[in-house]
Design a protein around this nucleic acid. Structure first.
Lengths: 328, 328
DNA sequence: GTCGGGCTTGTAAACGATTACAAGAACGAT
DNA sequence: ATCGTTCTTGTAATCGTTTACAAGCCCGAC
């Protein structure tokens, strides 16, 4: 006993399938026709098949957002912004998780191909040629929140993390901290490389030597905690972390080692996610414009759906610093 | 210039559409056939349309998880567990957000109806008859992570929050706290009512009077903070909070008011989400089995997809207490 | 030489909706 | 009464796949 189709409804109501479709889509119909159809629909518990519908009309009114790790609060900020834009435009947003692995991302893009959604917004953590290739071949408009080579010819929205790093270092130096360490995530990721370079440049701009540089296994709380001891070995008076999760993980280790934040060691996160506000002490964090990136990326996606031949755009969002109590 | 179809590929390769389909689906074919098809696919950049495909085969191999608030870390725990189960079974998981509003949930269930996914796992925060009705009419297997009336006849997996409350109160009493307050979320929600009742019963079991009961506007950090002052008015020596976000929000206010956790006030959260571990001090929290609920719910969903006529099951997952440093 | 069996390949009928087009009904104007 | 308009309704084509079925081919066995 499979689900009823529009034909069953038509038969039950004693009308044609076209009439059923028309009533259901709110096209003009007589009172009596509408009534009969409604009754039949009710009685059979008919639910239209959206696959068939979207196959015919060519759109699903669904958009997909693919993120690396749903546990990373930076994505909730971004997700909220995206959601707002796309739902205002009449689309439903669905979120899917890629692993941190690039092959997962490729598989996702491939699988997400034509049909499941009208567009894809992806925030990849690692990028290689396969990914770029799969994006181009994907068959549905894609915009990337992150950094891909310009020659890839895809719409991108990215953060300016070097500038963000500079803001963080400026702030710390202004507060008299000069022995600054960096806690990075995996260096073979897009944000990892960008932030490492940004850190180096920012210190150079102030004629400072890095107190130390540590690479965590992941951009996660647990990874930050795991390498906390290592970070402290250089006895820094401040640590900049590649994201908020790492920063919070580190702070736990600092406190565990009997150090005070910010008196003994100042800590700066990046992303300015909800966690920065929730952590204790509240975390000074570089706002890389996640919300704005989400919003702009969503707008780009909508525009590309509208007109697939438009010239690819590459937007860079400027950072700001949210100063909280984890720095003096 | 729309995307190429299988017919275009067939023409380019000089074979029939059936052959193309067969090659693409890995059915036996001669070396030469496979080669010609592959070449044509490559050359045209053909991507199969999954709508058409799933219309024909009757499955999408996608499952949807609908949660109220992506910012609530309890859902990431659940989501990870669900993801693990369903991806092992060969399904892709997509997540979508309902507001806290029940009409949004209904709209979602309706909209998610037949076609977008092979099944729906929903964790509703408010439940009414419309929602139950829409679930039954949805046309696709649904399992609810939460509490709906038994007569609704749907598969459910829910937590035992009264028992959880009891664990929390037991623990606090064992540590000598007797002036216990409760910080609830909105009382007109399913978890809100369950936890309020659980709290009352648990105190009664210990012959205690509640120090106070406060209702926050939402199950969020901000809402917890906002009513922090109110919670403190009754000068409790311990506060149990309806979830971790509220607890962390409250702790910020406690510290702001010059109180120490746990020396002056002990704080207990519920959900035992990642945030409990990340907060400072780490939060003692009632583990309501989010991961297990996610896992069991996913299993139920898979089973129902397999056999839609099976008798609905109602699973209750038992709680445990994760003691951390926010209690003595 | 003919027949049957196993392959490979093609033709065409689904899947379940939307919608262009045509046909019929109703109705007013002439 | 006839005609033309407008409005409603039905028929059938279509979206892009998969797949049942049939047809063709090649081969070995009789």
């Amino acid at each position: 006993m499979s689900r009823p189709t529009i034909a069953a409804v038509a038969q039950a109501a004693g009308v044609s399938v076209a009439s059923v479709s028309r009533v259901l889509n709110g096209l003009p119909a007589t009172e009596e026709m509408a009534e009969r159809v409604q009754r039949a629909v009710e009685q059979l518990g008919y639910v239209p098949d959206s696959r068939a519908r979207s196959l015919k009309v060519g759109r699903t009114f669904q958009l997909t957002l693919a993120v690396a790790d749903v546990g990373n609060p930076v994505y909730v900020t971004m997700m909220r912004a995206v959601e707002e834009v796309v739902s205002a435009a009449g689309y439903r947003l669905v979120v899917t998780t890629t692993g941190a692995d690039v092959v997962d991302e490729v598989a996702l893009v491939r699988g997400m191909a034509r049909g499941y959604a009208d567009g894809l917004l992806i925030s990849p953590i690692r990028v290689d040629e396969d990914l770029v290739k799969s994006i181009r071949e994907c068959g549905v408009p894609v915009v990337v929140a992150g950094n891909v080579p310009a020659k890839a010819g895809v719409d991108t929205v990215r953060a300016n993390s070097p500038k963000g790093m500079l803001l963080a270092v400026d702030h710390l130096v202004a507060k008299g901290r000069t022995h600054i360490a960096f806690l990075n995530g995996p260096a073979d990721t897009v944000p990892g490389t960008a932030r490492a370079k940004g850190f180096a440049d920012a210190l150079k701009a102030h004629d400072l030597q890095p107190a130390g540089e540590t690479e965590a296994a992941d951009f996660t709380f647990a990874a930050g905690r795991a390498v906390g001891g290592e970070v402290l070995r250089s006895q820094p008076d401040a640590v900049i972390c590649a994201n908020d999760l790492l920063a919070v993980g580190l702070m736990h280790e600092l406190v565990g080692a009997g150090l005070r934040v910010p008196e003994d060691v100042a800590v700066v996160g990046m992303d300015d996610s909800e966690l920065a506000e929730q952590s204790f002490p509240p975390l000074t964090s570089v706002n890389l414009g996640s919300a704005e990136r989400g919003r702009r990326a969503a707008e780009l996606l909508l525009a590309r759906i509208e007109d697939n031949d438009r010239r690819p755009r590459r937007i860079v969002v400027q950072p700001s610093l949210s100063v909280r109590r984890s720095t003096p």
